[in-house]
Amino acid sequence: MQQPKVQIQPKVPGEWNTSLWGCFSNCGNCIATLCCPCITYGQIANIVDQGKTSVFSGGRNYAILMYFTCGCCLYSCFARSKLRYMFNLPPSPCGCADCLVHTCCEPCALCQEYRELQSRGFDMAVGWDLNTSQAGSTSVHAPVSQMMQGQMTNNQQNYNYQNAGYNNQNMNHQNAPPNQTMGQNDAYNNQNEYQINDPQEQVQY
């Protein structure tokens, strides 16, 4: 059975799969982020918020902050914090705070977060809902033939256990000591003789 590719919330501390300076490992995303970072942020926010923030609303909020307040880096750093919590990642690089990374290297930080989600098995083009639904469909449902085969196997095992108990009971009865069997027969014969010789049972003419 094929296992889902999406991996969420590991129990042990993880590491970033790419560095902050590895933007050119995905040139398409690098160019898109330089030209329109609001789209990249919207895709990241949709995943780290687990579908609560849509790609459109996340990108719209980022674009408003970028063009009117220049505070987009302070807004996007929260997505990096959620991403690190989701995969138990350390502050990077060199233990720098998330807000500092986004303030100094906003495009590089967005590219790194985008690549990290991709390396974890997320398809950034379809969003959170389709990613999780595809993962659930491959991990939950089993083929019908396997379910029927498992049920038949359980029924056969129960039948074998019942037969084994019945056979053991018969063997114990057959293997009883001869003295015990003769004693049971003598008691039965004595009871019959007592009933025949009972005066109350004799017929009076």
Results as ranks from 00 to 15, higher is better:
Q2Y: 10
Q3N: 09
Q9A: 15
K11S: 01
N17S: 05
T18R: 09
S19A: 02
L20Q: 00
S25M: 04
G28M: 00
N29A: 10
I31K: 05
I31T: 04
C35P: 05
T40V: 02
Q43Y: 08
A45Y: 13
N46E: 13
I47Y: 01
Q50P: 01
Q50K: 09
G51E: 07
G51W: 10
G51P: 03
G59L: 01
Y62W: 05
Y62A: 04
Y67G: 10
T69G: 02
C70I: 05
K82R: 07
L83Q: 00
P90V: 04
S92V: 04
C96H: 11
C96S: 14
L100K: 00
P107E: 00
E113M: 01
R115Y: 02
Q118R: 05
S119Y: 10
S119K: 10
G127P: 04
G136K: 02
A142V: 06
M152I: 12
M152P: 05
T153H: 08
N158A: 15
Y159V: 12
N160E: 13
N160A: 09
N168K: 07
N170Y: 14
M171D: 12
H173P: 06
N175A: 08
N175T: 06
Q180K: 13
Q180M: 10
M182S: 12
M182N: 11
G183N: 15
D186P: 12
D186Y: 14
N189V: 13
N190I: 12
Q191D: 06
Y194N: 15
I196K: 12
I196T: 09
E201R: 08
V203T: 12
Q204V: 14
Q204F: 13
